[in-house]
């Protein structure tokens, strides 16, 4: 059996969970077994049953007052108990913020081989091989797992959303967590609520120091808004606080894999590329034709961002209006 971890926050299922549900279902089909979800947190049964659309037949729902916030130690115990009670051979999670912490802990607890950041479904024809990105996107490694139990965390946007139709039954699951298990206290959660989370975004518009100042970000936000994209920035921009740190993509910021990455006035230093080079399509807009980013781009426009970006925004609006 394949057990899929349904990540959630404040009662809401995260988008990444729908992606891993589809991945878990596809893997289970390959293995000739079934895929079941485990949700640890505070999500209503009705919301969980929608995961059936992605092919999960059953969801175990572990709810109690000690599980409202993500705590890797407590959630590991809860998921390990679900592994034990279902006899799952493979646990699938998203390689997102929570998934990174949880997959590592589960691997150590279950003595299960781990592939952290899978980019494809496992090859189960001859053993169990899982491909993962290494050396900051400059190569791939095929990991072989021989342990009885296995843990796979899947890179966000690597598999995509695959609806199959159906409904899932939801069962209450007693994770056996009491107040004594909880060692950390969440004092506050601070989120920018009305924007698309960068790590989940399929489309991203990003800009660099070439924009000269934070007051010039209006056109970037407008373009992102027209596309339904998230906004991002390069390191120098977040270093001088023109943009918040959570928008910083690159080696020291976050790594993203959107379908479309539009880089405006970013030269494309190797440290920046490390965070974005797994994007499916890269568009570079830069007035310097020699900018190294053009070598990593699929499409490029050599031109002044202040002229090109508003025009591109209008062109996309026109395309959307006609579509």
């Amino acid at each position: 059996m394949v057990l899929v971890y349904i990540d959630n926050s404040e009662g809401q299922i995260k988008k990444a969970s729908y992606e891993v549900a589809g991945y878990g279902v596809a893997l289970a089909e390959q293995m000739g077994t079934e895929a079941v979800g485990i949700c640890v947190g505070n999500v209503a049964n009705d919301a969980l049953s929608t995961l059936g659309e992605y092919g999960l037949s059953k969801i175990l729902n572990a709810q109690n007052e000690h599980l409202n916030y993500f705590d890797s130690q407590v959630h590991t115990k809860a998921v390990a108990k679900a592994v034990e009670s279902t006899g799952a051979e493979v646990v699938v999670l998203s390689h997102n913020y929570n998934g990174k912490a949880l997959s590592a802990r589960l691997s150590a607890r279950l003595k299960a081989g781990l592939v952290a950041g899978a980019v494809e479904l496992p090859d189960t024809n001859n053993g169990f091989l899982v491909k993962k990105s290494v050396f900051s996107g400059k190569a791939f490694a095929n990991y072989e797992l021989k342990t009885d139990k296995k843990v796979i965390s899947v890179n966000p946007n690597a598999f995509g959303l695959h609806k199959k139709g159906g409904t899932a039954t939801v069962e209450t699951f007693d994770a056996g967590i009491s107040a004594d298990d909880v060692k950390v206290k969440v004092l506050s959660v601070n989120k920018v609520s009305d924007t698309i989370a960068l790590s989940d975004a399929e489309l991203v518009v990003s800009a660099g120091r070439g924009l000269k100042g934070p007051e010039n970000w209006g056109m970037i936000e407008e373009l992102a808004n027209t596309l339904g994209a998230a906004t991002a920035c390069s390191r120098p921009v977040s270093d001088v606080d023109w943009r918040p740190h959570h928008e910083h993509v690159g080696q020291t910021g976050i790594t993203i894999r959107p379908n479309l990455y539009i880089a405006v006035a970013i030269s494309g230093a190797i440290q920046h590329l490390a965070g974005v080079n797994s994007s499916k399509t890269i568009v570079v807009i830069n007035k310097d034709a020699e900018a190294p980013f053009f070598k990593a781009a699929d499409y490029g426009i050599v031109g002044d961002a202040f002229e090109v970006v508003p025009k591109l925004n209008e062109a996309i609006k026109a395309y959307k209006a006609s579509a």
Binding site: S72, Q73, T76, H95, K100, A101, L102, S103, A104, R105, L106, S107, A108, R109, L114, A116, G117, S133, V134, F135, S136, A141, Q251, T255, A274
Partner: peptide, 15 residues
């Protein structure tokens, strides 16, 4: 920056 796993800290905590 070689194997990009974000893994050792979590495993260590569990152990």
């Amino acid at each position: 920056i070689d194997y990009n796993g974000f893994v050792v800290g979590g495993m260590l905590a569990e152990l």
